[in-house]
Design a protein around this nucleic acid. Structure first.
Lengths: 258, 258
DNA sequence: GAGTGGTCTAGACCACGCG
DNA sequence: GCGTGGTCTAGACCACTCA
């Protein structure tokens, strides 16, 4: 095709505070966003970019790496580097610890411990945690509120392994990971979460002070140790009228180097 | 502290098919997972790792980069490299195009076009798309099903800018991005999505063949061009009994080099 | 076999954090 | 001032792809 007339190359300022690889990445990004380089098209080979801009190939690679990190380009070994098709549908919704989520919303979360007890696993829990029936578990019931309004009702079960008082400080971080670390001998290394849409049942509605059958998010969390053995399970019911998940995705590189 | 007795260093196999940086990353990962290196602790400086393992510093950096990519370590300029605290609550839920989601579930999606028309923006749409009232929009109504069962009801609005017939092939990818690319003169570069929990209203319930007030996910999507001007908006209602979002997070590096 | 990206080296200079 | 990570160079060899 040879549509690269090359001498339209913007210059790199080697004395700039901005790293050269960043400047180059920006130049290529602009060509893509402006449509000079179209999705599917092949970029010039690395060695050619290196000689064209009078920089080392490693620096070119660093620039391309940044663009690859945000999915604007991809490489195929032995073939070349290509412009990706924009896939603005591939978004991710972040869900951090709910305490953090609430802080992010600009409020101060408060945790109320509704109950803690040692229980024996029933059939259902035994199955979820892949344990024998009657294995002892620590069972937490928590209510998280902000500004006097209940937001979140949580039930968490941790495999019991050591006696530990409930510390006031724990309520500052009632995440499953933290509870398991405090109340179990296991070191959690893996976690699985499932997000469901549901409606509040009578009990949940009462606790959350919403109407029965109001929409809620239900987040289940499984926690595993480094041998993939389950060590905890939790279920959080969040008010649908107070939580939503937002995600942004951009066909730009703005995320890097903020 | 000097707890690095150093000569416990596992050896690197320079003739292995596995890259050296990957072998080193795995060695360090193991030290972290085994608790030899604890969260918050400082790693040996890069130059020290380089000389200890008889490799170049650039290779050490590549190894550390891989670990940083999965948040096991982080660097602080001028200070050093440190082991992160495990944050198993910081998960992300992926939501690709619904067509892809359905395929991922092992089913073959079918899209039915319930209607297309050119409409004029009312007050509500004008506000959402930041346009004048009465601006012309293309309005799509879609129903996506799999195995004879309706799963998803979508309403999408694209800023009208060129006449285009509705192509059969479009229904293979009825994503907002694709529709906007086909039916607008704008090149979408940014997208925002909002995920809500809700209950189906009468109309949605009828179309999705579920009971009124059943739980549903509602995904709103805004699409912008490279000047951040809105060019499309959509609302997808998904059956809560058929969709859930799952996410895994692991304190390991297994994702790299698949 | 020619062209490509993936890995690696052995140096170098810099800006930053801290005492 | 010293130690640290961040950037950069000018080479090298390899494995892969495709004609």
């Amino acid at each position: 095709m040879k549509e690269n007339k090359a001498y339209n190359s913007k210059k790199l300022d080697k004395n700039s505070v901005l790293p050269i690889y960043y400047q180059l990445a920006k130049i290529i990004e602009k060509k893509i966003v402006d449509g000079i380089l179209k999705p599917g098209e092949k970029l010039s080979p690395e060695h050619e970019l290196a000689s064209r801009y009078n920089i080392s190939r490693m620096t070119v690679r660093k620039a391309l790496q940044e663009l690859a990190k945000v999915n604007m380009i991809y490489t195929e070994k032995g073939k070349g580097t290509f412009v990706s098709k924009p896939r603005l549908e591939n978004t991710v919704f972040e869900l951090k610890d709910f305490h953090d989520e609430i802080k992010k919303m600009g409020m101060e979360p408060r945790t109320k411990l509704l109950g803690v007890e040692i229980i024996k696993a029933d059939k259902n829990l035994a199955k979820k945690l892949n344990l024998e029936i009657n294995t002892r578990l620590v069972y937490f019931r928590l209510l998280i509120s902000a500004e006097g309004e209940p937001l979140l009702y949580e039930n968490k079960y941790i495999v019991y392994s050591k006696k530990m008082p409930i510390l006031e400080s724990e309520l500052k971080d009632p995440s499953l990971t933290n509870l398991a670390t405090q109340h179990g001998n296991y070191f959690p290394t893996m976690s699985k979460r499932i997000l469901n849409a549901a409606v509040a049942n009578s009990k949940e509605a009462e606790i959350l002070e919403i109407k029965k059958n109001s929409p809620v998010f239900v987040v289940e969390q499984y926690l595993y140790d480094n041998e993939k053995k389950p060590i905890g399970w939790g279920k959080s019911v969040c008010r649908g009228d107070r939580f939503k998940f937002t995600s942004y995705i951009g066909w730009t590189m703005d995320s890097i180097l903020e």
